[in-house]
Design a protein around this nucleic acid. Structure first.
Lengths: 174, 174
DNA sequence: ATCCGCATGTAAGTGGTTACATGATTCG
DNA sequence: CGAATCATGTAACCACTTACATGCGGAT
């Protein structure tokens, strides 16, 4: 459902193939949504079936024909409707916290190791996100760009918070 | 998979019924993992099938018999193995950020509303988590309790970070 | 030679959600 | 009198993942 909206959002910017969409998902969108290609192709087919997108076949000599997808007016209407509808909250799912919750089955060293590994991961993630942001231009009043950057800032804020938390927890571990 | 481990974790503390497990999931565990009862019962049956748990039927007069589940040695071994195995990272999925990314389809007022709704939600979540923590005792050197509280602290840290971020974003929105 | 990028998809399986189904007891 | 709590589960569905399958061209 949300993937369908995300794809409509991308198609609202420009017509694209499944392959193009997958590339966007893996780069600019990766810090807040993941989807694999099987699902992208399936969802895209669904959007065509329901009339929210149309396909234009572009033959190529050296590769399979590009299936260029265009958003339709009903697709654009659906996108706007989604943006103003009740926000959906996904259930929380944090495998690391699940482990930590039961980590007293391990000895103190085992717990410390679990935390140290998490600290290293958090540091790496933060560096990655900061690297991405460094590549982006300043928004300078462009609201679209500002909002796209804001999603990245959100990721950075959370990554930093997680790192702070893990360092604090390591210091205080009894 | 992770739910199976979580259930083993609970059974390692005390024998429980599916109903008991569901109650724990909805309270102490709710801030980092969600599961509905259909899935709990199915997973529990799977643990029995694979020999990681056994069932003891406790008949009652006024309600259906309690199916009390006990962890087996192989179940406990599996739990420990999980705690020390490579951490799993779930794919990111943040529907709100997905919306924000494409929110320039709306006018400035629409974007401001989206952010304000998020701010209110974040504030509510933070208050809920802080309420939960207020009910908990001080760990005083009890590592198990300290770790369970740490997972809650993690939620609070992130909720606070999100609130800061949304307030900053609202102030800077062009 | 081998891997990466381009470009399409299908098949089978797992994990998770929603709705259905039952029935006694207790509290407001 | 109605809602919540205790206590069990099944059936159907949906979303998502993993593995399979193909094939050319360009770079290392």
């Amino acid at each position: 459902m949300i993937l369908a909206r995300l794809i409509l959002g991308l198609l609202s910017i420009a017509p694209m193939t499944g392959y193009d969409i997958k590339k966007h998902l893996d780069t600019t969108i990766s810090h807040f949504w993941a989807a694999d290609k099987a699902q992208v192709y399936r969802t895209l087919a669904g959007l065509v079936d329901s009339g929210h997108a149309t396909v234009q076949v572009m033959p190529q000599e050296k590769a399979p024909a590009r299936q260029l997808h265009h958003i339709t007016p009903s697709g654009r209407a659906l996108l706007r409707e989604w943006l103003t509808s009740e926000p959906e909250r996904l259930p929380e799912r944090e495998p690391f916290l699940a482990r930590l919750f039961f980590a007293s089955e391990l000895d103190r060293g085992g717990v410390a190791e679990l935390l140290e590994n998490r600290r290293a991961d958090a540091e790496k993630l933060l560096a990655e996100l900061e690297g991405m942001r460094a590549e982006q231009p300043e928004p300078k009043g462009d609201r679209g760009l500002f909002l796209r950057l804001a999603t990245l800032e959100n990721g950075i804020t959370h990554a930093r918070a997680d790192l702070d938390w893990v360092e604090r927890t390591m210091r205080e571990l009894p």
